[in-house]
Amino acid sequence: MRVAIAGAGAVGRSIAGELLENGHEVLLIDKNPSHITVERVPQAEWLLADACEITSLDEAALQRCHCVIAATGDDKVNLVVSLLAKTEYGVPRVVARINHPSNEWLFNDAWGVDVAVSTPRLMSALVEEAVSVGDLVRLLRFSQGDANLVELTLPDEAALVGVRVGDVTWPEDTALVTIIREHRVLVPSQDDALEAGDELLFVAAQERETQLEDLLSLTRDEMQAAKAAQSEPGSATSE
């Protein structure tokens, strides 16, 4: 896969190094001569140019790229690069870095962004994920489909502990993609039973997050109380 990265600062170089280790072709673009440090990522291609200029992107042959990553420290630049990559060059996948959380609402498909990565939000989410049990934590937002990658650690008292994945009625537009259990990564099957302490990762529509959190946080006592209320005379189920 050929990837162009706009922004050859510390973030851009780090991304380039990871991609090169995974066998991809990488082109780093930056207009700041001090950022053109070829010796730091010698396997990459380098281009001293303004990634917001069409002539520069023509020189970079952006139409040959499978992915463009807008990784500069300027949100305005990242939006322009994303829009040009998608609309002018038809790049299949555009990933953009968000530097300031107040600008997050702009990073969507209207600006050509497929995936927006907010560094401040991601760091705060990782902190929450490390210390929160029973609370839904949003890790990553996907622009397409208005979906998010969310995580919840299943509490000991959760009603779903011991329940098979296939027996749970998950909210619409929600998919359980991974269970992290005792340092193992599990691809969930219908027959897997949920355990206390499981870290559950979902891709879920934003409007379903509250419903999903309510389901996962429901305790055994709350479930029994709800069943008792339904079985009382005069309830909807007993009539």
Rank of each mutant, 00 (worst) to 15 (best):
L83W: 04
A85Q: 11
A85I: 12
K86Q: 04
K86E: 06
T87R: 12
E88H: 13
Y89R: 06
Y89E: 00
Y89L: 14
G90S: 15
P92I: 10
P92L: 03
A96S: 15
R97N: 02
I98F: 06
I98H: 04
N99R: 09
N99T: 10
N99L: 11
P101E: 09
S102F: 07
N103K: 09
E104S: 14
N108A: 08
A110Y: 15
A110W: 09
V115E: 15
A116H: 05
A116I: 09
A116V: 08
A116T: 05
S118L: 07
P120Y: 12
R121M: 12
M123A: 12
M123R: 14
A125D: 00
E128I: 06
E129K: 13
A130D: 10
L139H: 09
L139I: 14
L140P: 09
R141L: 03
S143P: 07
G145L: 02
A147P: 01
N148W: 05
L149R: 02
V150P: 00
L152I: 15
L152Q: 01
L154P: 00
P155C: 15
D156H: 02
D156A: 02
E157Y: 06
A158V: 14
A159T: 02
V163T: 12
R164V: 06
V165H: 04
V165P: 06
G166T: 09
G166L: 11
D167C: 08
D167P: 09
D167F: 07
V168E: 06
T169Y: 01
W170R: 00
D173N: 08
T174N: 06
T174G: 03
T174V: 15
A175Q: 15
V177C: 04
I179E: 15
R181L: 12
R181C: 12
V185H: 06
V185S: 04
L186D: 15
V187R: 13
P188A: 07
S189Q: 14
D191I: 08
L194K: 04
E195Y: 03
E195L: 01
A196Y: 02
L200T: 11
L201V: 12
F202I: 02
V203N: 11
A204R: 00
A204T: 05
A205R: 13
A205D: 13
A205V: 05
Q206N: 06
Q206I: 10
Q206Y: 10
E207S: 04
R208M: 01
R208A: 03
R208E: 02
R208F: 00
R208N: 06
E209H: 04
